[in-house]
């Protein structure tokens, strides 16, 4: 369970508050969606939770299954079960995708006191999971995300998620830059990972991703706060009427 309480965050380099008291609880096994207009702080929330530099937490807490996330290094958060699917997956020339995946999987296993996967076992698992996402052997061999299309990059994020088997998955605008078919493929990958022990926080601008990944709870974020919470119907309301009415109602 992810519990965020009264989270206040400002940019490190300037005196600009981005998150102004976020309260959010994602129960284990549930899928929550966060929608909101540009600049509402959705991506900042995902970065702060995963430990990116450049932000300063001025108040509040974020706890994953009893562990204080904000006290951990990014790699420790990952080992604790947190995963962020990036809005813009990073290209890393010179590092093979397979090397990257194996290093990550084994680093997390090691951090949790588990045995590392043998090369053979790893290969078997990665091939099966890659095939389900239509990621071919050639893509696995190439340097991480280098020369990948937008859709390939997002599928590669989901492959990493499938390999790392996190408890808490944050998807930051995973639908951006995807055509309908690519979005379906990504959504299927996500749905295959839904389970009782795994929670999701899906950040998106649009309802259409939520047609494929049905959320249990939908939150609306505006000006650094969760301003409204409801069921899947809330996303439909946004789709039909935009944010203006909702924001006028709550602010």
């Amino acid at each position: 369970m992810l519990e965020i309480k009264n989270l206040h965050v400002k940019l490190e380099e300037e005196d600009k508050a981005i998150l102004k008291g976020v309260d959010l609880t994602v129960e284990t096994g549930k899928v929550h969606a966060i929608m909101g207009p540009n600049g509402s702080g959705k991506s900042t929330l995902s970065y702060v939770l995963s430990g990116r530099d450049g932000y300063e937490v001025t108040a509040g807490s974020a706890v994953l299954d009893g562990q204080d996330l904000l006290a951990l290094e990014p790699e420790e958060r990952a080992a604790a079960g947190l995963f962020l699917a990036f809005q813009y997956p990073v290209e890393i020339p010179g590092v093979g995708n397979m090397t990257f995946l194996r290093t990550a999987v084994n680093a997390q296993r090691k951090a949790r006191g588990e045995d590392e996967l043998s090369a053979g076992d790893f290969l078997k698992v990665v091939r099966a999971k890659a095939a389900a996402l239509k990621i071919d052997a050639e893509m696995l061999k190439r340097p991480v995300n280098v020369g990948f299309s937008g859709g390939e990059k997002k599928r590669n994020e989901i492959l990493q998620m499938a390999m790392l088997e996190p408890k808490m998955c944050i998807l930051d605008e995973t639908d951006s830059g995807l055509d309908v078919d690519a979005m379906k493929l990504v959504a299927e990958g996500v749905n295959a990972l839904r389970s009782e022990g795994r929670s999701f926080l899906v950040i998106t601008h649009y309802q259409r991703l939520l047609d494929h990944i049905t959320p249990d709870v939908v939150h609306i974020m505006a000006d650094g706060r969760i301003v409204k919470t409801g069921g899947p119907e809330l996303a439909l309301e946004v789709e039909q009427n935009g944010y203006t009415d909702i924001l006028a109602e709550v602010l």
């Binding site: 990116r52 080992a79 290093t103 999987v105």
Partner: peptide
């Protein structure tokens, strides 16, 4: 950015 990406996947700094 690449460093953070790797760390976010659990790879120690």
């Amino acid at each position: 950015t690449a460093l953070f990406y790797l760390r976010s996947r659990g790879v120690p700094e």
